[in-house]
Design a binder for these strands. Structure first.
Length: 439
DNA sequence: TTTTGAGTTGTTCGA
DNA sequence: GTCGAACAACTCAAA
């Protein structure tokens, strides 16, 4: 029996592997392998969202989704029993290793499609080398183009096979996004109706929640970017959103060409960057992770991450900048924390988003960027709406004091004083960068 | 091969 | 408050 192996493509629509598996003849076994290498490091938010996606998929398969726990090479071999296995290609470092092992074990693995409009590795510069700068990549990417979404497949006959139960969703603090393909379609429709027209202006505003909120669905493949790209026109908002989708593809391409870059700085000269270790650094990291730095917008973001498994991108950048530039903690540590808690945790986007902020990645900026937590707060959350939503200690504090509560005559009860002096740490960050640049 | 223009998302300083 | 310049020099990508 042909097997349809779901990995990060938890949908039935516009899924080339579904078509191929159906065309192979015979009842198709829809399989998901609960792989400890991926399940283990995931925090409860990410686990809960994945469980939600699996339940939704199971429902649209009339309860026939086969979930098996264990090592993929062993589990897939057992289920396939010599038959062909169809799956979308995974270009991440772990996915490539896993699939190599699967093929080596003799399984007839047929990779069809990928989670990207253009698979990593396909776009190269005139010299045939991978792009290292976003803008030329994005031009080539748009020129390259992508296929239209697939029509619905003729009805697929799904096999009935025993599996392990879908694990219970861990209990989580607050509300996670609704999971699954139908929820993704609703979210996309909502974004199209309410968010896309003003996207260019609103996407940077955490207070009005102006981003698309589609990242968790793209991460788990409840949506394919092709489905979004096919509907995008030429307006400013649509162009800006298309560019955001292109960033996702660019970073997947960068990680594909340098799989090591998820663990160490992409830029060789930045690998010797001086970072802080030890008890003081650990305490600062803990304060950052808990949302107790005393900088309201940073804390609001870190608390949103904990409770919702998601953070607005503008605030992600600021929180990352704060950890790296103000606390001098290695970016990989912050990136791991994000990976654990984000429901949209994507290794490529997360890694290279962090590296962009840390100044260790493909970005060729002529100067060192150090985000100012107060300036960012005033510009992107002017009334403090977003801050007060997550930092309840400041619920009675209005703008402008909400941006710098240490200036109040009386410190708000329960809210910490700033753990560092931003101006001093900024100079320290610049000093460390200058040291690297001199080598 | 050499040259040229450009590089997501920033901050500070001084007019 | 608003605005433009300065902030390293370098690397990339295409002409």
């Amino acid at each position: 029996m042909p097997v349809l192996w779901f990995r990060r493509d938890l949908r039935l629509r516009d899924n080339p592997a579904v078509h191929e598996a159906a065309a192979a003849g015979g009842d198709v076994v829809p399989l998901f392998v609960l792989d400890d290498a991926l399940w283990g490091p995931a925090g409860s938010n990410r686990r809960a969202f994945l469980v939600g996606c699996l339940r939704a998929l199971d429902e649209s398969l009339d309860g026939r989704l086969v979930v098996r726990r264990g090592d993929p090479a062993r589990v897939v071999a057992e289920v396939a029993d010599g038959g062909p296995v169809f799956a979308a290609e995974d270009f991440g470092p772990y996915g490539v290793r896993r699939d190599d092992a699967v093929v080596e074990s003799g399984i007839d693995l047929r990779l069809v499609g990928s989670p990207y409009a253009v698979p990593p590795g396909e776009i190269t510069s005139g010299a045939g080398a991978p792009y290292k700068v976003f803008t030329p990549f994005s031009k080539a990417w748009r020129q390259h183009g992508w296929p239209a979404p697939l029509p619905a497949p003729r009805s697929v006959r799904w096999a009935e096979l025993d599996g392990d139960p879908i694990p219970d969703a861990p209990s989580v603090g607050a509300e996670l996004p609704a999971a699954g393909e139908e929820a993704a379609r609703r979210a996309a429709r909502r974004f199209w109706e309410h968010g896309l027209a003003d996207y260019a202006e609103r996407r940077d505003r955490p207070d009005v929640d102006g981003s698309s909120r589609l990242s968790p669905y793209l991460r788990w493949g409840c949506l394919h970017p092709r489905q979004l790209l096919a509907k995008l026109g030429r307006s400013t908002g649509e162009s800006v959103f298309r560019t955001e989708l292109c960033w996702r593809e660019f970073y997947a391409d960068v990680l594909f060409h340098d799989p090591e870059s998820s663990r160490r700085s992409w830029h060789p000269s930045m690998r010797g960057m001086q970072v802080d270790h030890g008890r003081r650094a650990d305490a600062r990291f803990d304060a950052w992770a808990a949302g107790e730095t005393g900088f309201p917008l940073v804390d609001a973001g870190m608390r949103q991450l904990r409770t919702e498994g998601w953070m607005h991108n503008r605030v992600r950048m600021l929180a990352a900048s704060f950890l790296v530039k103000d606390l001098h903690v290695d970016w990989t540590r912050g990136a791991r924390h994000f990976m654990e808690h984000l429901v949209d945790a994507d290794l490529a986007s997360n890694t290279h988003g962090w590296q962009w902020v840390a100044g260790t990645g493909t970005d060729a900026s002529p100067f060192v960027r150090v985000f100012n937590p107060v300036t960012q707060s005033k510009r992107f959350d002017p009334d403090g709406t977003y801050i007060r939503r997550y930092v309840t200690e400041l619920s009675g504090v209005a703008a402008p004091a909400v941006h710098e509560p240490w200036k109040l005559a009386e410190r708000p009860a329960g809210y910490p004083a700033p753990i560092v002096d931003h101006d001093a740490e900024r100079l320290e960050a610049l000093r460390r960068f200058a040291e690297r640049a001199g080598r």
